[in-house]
Amino acid sequence: MLELRFDPVRLPPRCNELRHEVREFLAAEVAAGTFDPRDPESGSSTAKEFSKRVGARGWIGMTWPKQYGGQERSFLERYVVTEEMRVANAPTRHFFVADRQSGPTLIRYASEAIKRKILPAIVRGEICFCIGMSEPNSGSDLFAASTKATRVDHGWRINGTKIWTSNAHNSDYMIGLFRTSASTRENRRHGLTSFLVNMKAPGVSCNPIGQMSGQKEFNEVVFDDVIIPDDHTIGEIDGAWKQATSELAYERSGPERFLETYGALSELVDAVGTQPPATVVAGIGRLVAELHTLRRMSVSVAGMLEAGREPVVEAAIVKDVGTVWEQGLPHRARDLAALVAHETGPNVTFDEKLAFYLKIAPKVTIQGGTTEILRGIIARGLGLR
């Protein structure tokens, strides 16, 4: 049975210095009109150039080896950069997935030629990655994946579909999980292999999926006789489940897993004014205390990653609890705002912002694994199933 550990980790002084540096950078970007921190949808047209400026500051791939363009800085320093970017609603989507998990996966499992070609370009903020895991009819159950990679001369032919693939329509590459052999009775995890897919290759098509918020960040990705070269195989043939499990520790534990609707809390504080009723003060205090707890858990996982551990179960807990919190936040903010009498009528700005967060809240469970799958991972890690 696994012993859960969320060791108390304090951010060292160098992290506080970095935080001030990031805040100054973001303030300058806001002043230049790159994005509006009160509008989560702003910055989409400037994301690529913003990515290059972040790369120039050394804040992409900052934990990676210097031989591939990284800075060999700590996971705790990377945590600070991520936290400041997310709270500010900075347009990070062009580089974030590559920085968080695709790059580390390539560092561990890709050929040297691929590392030297791809990793420096990620560090410079030039290329965008997506993750191909979920499939129709199997969702977050990765071991039920059926999109097939068949051996051909000098490579593999891929046919099938991935779904809920974030930002695939803007991506240059995907690291995808594909079926290369049938699973066995003894091991249903057998038979999956990871490949690096050029999203501009013939036979790859993206169909954006509309959401209530008007966003189209999710995609259905269809592979029709897509040829993958041999050197784009990532890691062990038929053994990618080990890699995928490790990769998800990076994906599920960061502050992005509980800060997506943070703006609802910020807008609430502004909307209730300087002298809200005691019940509202207590409600906001409770929300802040819960947020602080999530943050401490997430920082602890960052500390484990820095120590070379693979906190898969702890990361799943952060994602599960964080999802529940950020999904409920807009509803709780609405209820607290209703307790404040607005003499001048409704707060239009708050109502508009809250409407957006209410619409995006349902989709956060899809990102990084559904609640049901996460709780299965946690139960298995604790020896309960």
Rank of each mutant, 00 (worst) to 15 (best):
V364Y: 02
P311S: 07
V324P: 00
S205I: 10
S42I: 12
S194R: 09
S298Q: 02
A121C: 09
V288R: 05
S42G: 04
D320Q: 12
Q243M: 09
G132H: 03
S298H: 11
G381Q: 02
F356D: 04
G381F: 04
T323M: 05
H94E: 07
I378M: 01
T365H: 14
I228S: 07
G369W: 05
F35I: 09
E24W: 13
L336F: 07
V30E: 12
E247C: 07
E326D: 14
N198P: 15
P208H: 08
G43T: 04
V318M: 10
S183L: 08
H342M: 07
K162W: 09
K117N: 10
R309P: 01
Y250H: 15
G125Y: 06
N347T: 08
G263Q: 02
Q215P: 03
R286V: 10
G368W: 02
E17P: 12
A110N: 04
L329S: 00
S138Y: 09
V81D: 02
E220Y: 01
V312T: 13
A337G: 09
D36G: 05
V30S: 03
I114N: 02
R296S: 14
Q215M: 10
N137A: 08
N219E: 06
S44P: 02
T233W: 00
T233F: 08
T245F: 01
A289P: 03
Q101A: 12
F75P: 01
L291Y: 13
V152Y: 07
T279W: 06
I114W: 03
T82M: 08
I360S: 00
V30T: 08
A32G: 02
V123E: 03
V312E: 07
D238Q: 01
V313A: 05
A302K: 11
L358C: 05
E267Q: 13
E256P: 04
D172C: 03
L287P: 12
I237T: 00
C206A: 13
R124A: 07
F96R: 08
G61Q: 01
P362D: 07
T46H: 11
L287Y: 07
D238C: 01
Q275C: 12
V364T: 09
R100W: 05
A244E: 13
V280M: 10
R188V: 15
F50N: 05
L18C: 02
Q211M: 13
E72S: 07
G176Y: 04
F218K: 06
G33Y: 11
T147N: 13
F258G: 02
Y262R: 08
D335G: 00
I234E: 10
S51G: 09
P346A: 02
D99S: 02
V197Q: 09
A56T: 12
T365D: 13
A264Q: 10
A98F: 04
K148H: 12
L76C: 01
G328C: 04
M199W: 03
L76H: 04
R57H: 15
T323R: 00
E372V: 15
L2H: 14
